[in-house]
Nucleic acid binder design. Structure first.
Length: 555
RNA sequence: GGGUCCGUGGUGUAAUGGUAGCACGAGAGAUUCUGAUUCUCUUUGUUGGGGUUCGAGUCCCUACGGACCUGCCA
């Protein structure tokens, strides 16, 4: 709510605050989030979305959603719809929805303007030749043979390009800047290429398409974007960005770069994510192991958790890699407050309460969420035969094992204290059943004259149901997949990132509505999957396990 | 023998020339009908070297380290 004001402002926030107070921004702050619709949004985009929309919110400005759709070969409406859905889910509402392709006509006349001013020319060099002429990082380039064509000739040629009189790739429009510039982006960059492709937004209206460089800054300018925030790799493009604004004499948007988000144990580039999807390493863009917005949504992350996370990581120009633990903390923190508690047993071990009446129809009352009294209580059937977690029993238990062991007592969560009297094994020596004594005086009351430290979860044997649960682990086995350029990043995938198991769940869970999150007590947070759950037969995804200081101690 | 940007605990960040702080993680303890949560406490840091200054994480120089740039991708 008001937490932004407490947190110290990052460098971009400060620039904006300064511009605002110095009266530089006549119409207030205008930002934009400019995705290319060529893939699904990921956590890196979430950082940018929170930055751009967050700043607009904070300073009562506006943030546009603009599709940077200048490359019809790679873009599609499927991506556009997914992007809009993800932004909405994060809780942001664009001031306007724009398409760079809506500016194509304006861009075209600006190109003509540069041509007439002798600042752009049509070049016949093919891609390969152009590369050769460009020079290298340490050597200057040399001028194209077409560099000195007259404005008249260039105009006629460019008009023919638009009219479709040349083949794809045959000619190109270039800016005329400086072939010896140390910044290669200034060595007569491409402005327009010929490409006969169907565009998802403009259809077949064009056979020439402007490049990113010739589109982005002018689009910002047209929308009166005051602060154009982008990632570090565009730093080298800023001189070009400014060059177009100066040559054209248009609204001066200011580009400011910040570091993109990197997270341990995952990859964060659309190219790599696309590869994971296309090669079938994951089950689609919204696979819960993916760092996509749609993936983590299915995984059970909340918008609140993602926004808190983005707040935590901050905004700087330092190229860092954030520990995934920060993300996990954010989601536990939110889910702890809002998720109702339930019980589920993953590796059932039968417990028979020898002194408990045979056919008694009893229930115990369980609190739905101790963090939220409003969440109320529920009844769980309690019966003579139960399942507990196999790992909650140990035949030779160490002193610090606060669970069940021969002769030892433990509390059944929300029910009675029981004592293990007998261990039944099968022919193979496998433990198949525990025979326990139930202290009937301990329902909602402490045991007489002794203290029982351990509390374990359980489900009634006959009345619990089996449900499919998907246990997700990190997608990669190394902190920085793809770091070693010699190893394909797909070889660093974690073969155990998905385990499908059956769990015995308390009966009420069968009614779990898809998309609802729960804490399975002592285990972790889970969400009823929105894609594969059927009415009465939910499938659960593990969002994140609970912190476990005992498991850590054991190693 | 190119250009641009960046170096603060293990990780992410704050300190805007004036006490190096916060969060996560890790460790110890308290509380607990979740070995969760909560609460205490502990741990570890300004890349190196010069300079300016009463005073430098902050300004200057330099070395070192890292990122990005040679698409008609964005």
């Amino acid at each position: 709510m008001s937490e932004e004001s407490e947190k110290s402002a990052h460098f971009i926030d400060q620039i904006i605050a300064d511009d605002l107070s110095s009266g530089k921004l006549a119409d207030g702050l205008q930002t934009r989030f400019p995705p290319e619709p060529n893939g699904y949004l990921h956590l890196g985009h979430a950082k940018s979305i929170c930055l751009n929309f967050g700043l607009a919110e904070k300073y009562k400005g506006r943030c546009n959603l603009r599709f940077d759709d200048t490359n019809p070969d790679k873009e599609s409406v499927e991506y556009i719809e997914a992007i809009k859905r993800d932004i909405r889910w994060l809780g942001f509402l664009p001031n306007r929805e724009c398409f760079a392709s809506d500016y194509f006509e304006q861009l075209y006349s600006w190109a003509l303007e540069l041509i007439d001013a002798g600042k752009a020319y049509v070049c016949d060099l093919n891609a390969e030749a152009m590369r050769a002429y460009r020079g290298t990082l340490t050597e200057p380039g040399k001028p194209s043979p077409c560099r000195d064509r007259s404005p008249e000739e260039n105009r006629a040629l460019f008009e023919k390009m638009r009219a479709g009189e040349f083949a794809d790739g045959e000619k190109i429009l270039r800016a005329k800047i400086d072939m010896a510039h140390p910044n290669l982006n200034m060595r007569d960059p491409a402005l327009y290429r010929i490409r006969r492709a169907h565009h998802h937004h403009t259809g077949d209206a064009w056979c020439i398409y402007p490049t990113y460089d010739f589109t982005h800054g002018q689009s910002d300018s047209l929308e009166h974007v005051t602060h154009s925030l982008c990632t570090l790799e565009f730093e080298d493009h800023r001189p070009l960005y400014n060059w177009f604004i100066e040559q054209l004499g248009i609204f001066p948007s200011r580009q400011i770069e910040f570091a993109r988000l990197n997270l341990t144990y995952t990859v964060m580039s659309k190219r790599r994510l696309l590869e994971l999807v296309e090669a079938g390493h994951v089950n689609g863009w919204d696979d819960p192991r993916m760092p996509t917005i749609s993936g983590i949504r299915r995984r059970g992350y909340t918008p609140r958790a993602v926004r808190d996370f983005c707040e935590t990581i901050g905004v700087t120009k330092f190229n860092s890699t954030t520990d995934i633990a920060l993300l996990e903390h954010a989601v536990r923190n939110d889910l702890n407050r809002v998720a109702q508690r339930r019980m589920a047993v993953f590796e059932p071990l039968k417990v028979v309460l020898t002194n408990y009446p045979e056919d008694q129809e009893a229930t115990v009352e369980a609190i739905n969420n101790p963090e939220d009294p409003q969440a109320g209580v529920r009844a769980i059937p309690f019966t003579k035969e139960l399942f507990i977690e196999r790992s909650d029993f140990m035949e030779d238990a160490p002193k610090k094992f606060f669970r069940l062991a021969p002769g030892r007592e433990v509390r059944l969560r929300y029910a009675y204290v029981i004592r293990c009297d007998e261990v039944i094994k099968d022919a193979a020596g496998e433990i198949v059943e525990l025979r326990c004594h139930c202290d009937m005086d301990t329902l909602g009351a402490p045991p007489e004259g002794r203290k029982v430290k351990g509390v374990i979860h359980w489900v009634p044997a006959d009345k619990s149901k089996s449900a499919e649960v998907r246990l997700f682990d990190r997608l990669f086995t190394v902190e920085r997949p793809g770091r070693d350029k010699a190893v394909p990043f797909t070889e660093e995938l974690n073969p155990e990132s998905l385990k499908i198991v059956q769990a015995m769940v308390e009966p009420s869970l069968l009614q779990a509505e898809a998309g609802r999150s729960f804490q399975f007590e002592r285990v972790g947070y889970f969400i009823a999957d929105t894609r594969d759950s059927e009415p009465g037969a939910p499938v659960f995804n593990r969002t994140v396990p609970l912190r476990d200081s005992w498991g850590k101690q054991k190693g």
